[in-house]
C-alpha cells in the first residue's frame, strides 16, 4: 500500500478501511472506503465512530469525490479524509478545499511540485470546507 501524504498532525490510523456495504452491515470498523458512486450521506449517522474515510478517485476526471468530501465535512466529520487513486498534484489544492487532508495517489507525486501547488493561491472566491475566508468576506469585514 502507498504511504499516504497526510496534512494532519495526529497519528496515522492503521485499521484497514472496509467497504461501505461491509461498514453498514453491522461492522464496528472505524475506517471505511467509499467508491466514487457511493452515497457519502449513508455515513452521516456514523461519523462519530469513524477515524478514517477513504474516498476513491478511479480516474482523475471523475469529480464525484469532491462532493463526497464536502458533504462529510459539512456534516461535522473531523477524522481523516483521504483521497485515494488517480489523484494528481494539481488536484490536491482543490481536494484540500473540499475537506481532504490525506492523499494516497496511485502514482508518486513530486513533493516540490505539491508544495508549490499548495502555496500558490493566497485568496479564494468561495467558501468551501477548508475554512479559508472567501474574498467577499475579506472585502466586507
Amino acid at each position: 500500500m502507498v504511504e499516504a501524504l497526510r496534512l494532519r498532525d495526529d497519528a496515522a490510523h492503521d485499521e484497514p478501511a472496509v467497504t461501505l456495504d461491509a461498514f453498514l452491515g453491522q461492522s464496528n470498523a472505524t475506517a471505511v472506503r467509499i467508491e466514487a458512486g457511493d452515497d457519502a450521506r449513508l455515513l452521516l449517522p456514523h461519523l462519530d465512530r469513524l477515524a478514517l474515510i477513504e474516498v476513491s478517485f478511479p480516474k482523475f476526471r471523475d469529480g464525484r469525490g469532491y462532493s463526497a468530501g464536502r458533504i462529510l465535512r459539512e456534516a461535522g466529520y473531523t477524522g481523516e479524509l483521504r483521497a485515494e487513486g488517480d489523484v494528481l498534484v494539481d488536484q490536491i489544492p482543490l481536494m484540500r478545499r473540499c475537506g481532504f487532508d490525506s492523499f494516497a495517489p496511485a502514482a508518486p507525486v513530486d513533493p516540490a511540485a505539491l508544495e508549490r501547488a499548495l502555496e500558490r493561491y493566497d485568496h479564494v472566491y468561495q467558501a468551501a470546507a477548508d475554512g479559508q475566508v472567501p474574498v467577499w468576506k475579506l472585502r466586507h469585514g
Binding site: 469529480g63 468551501a128 477548508d130
Partner: peptide, 14 residues
C-alpha cells in the same frame, strides 16, 4: 464569475 472561478467542488464535473 467570481463564485465559479476555481470552484473546488465543480472543477471536474461530468
Amino acid at each position: 464569475r467570481q463564485w465559479s472561478t476555481f470552484h473546488p467542488e465543480f472543477s471536474y464535473l461530468p
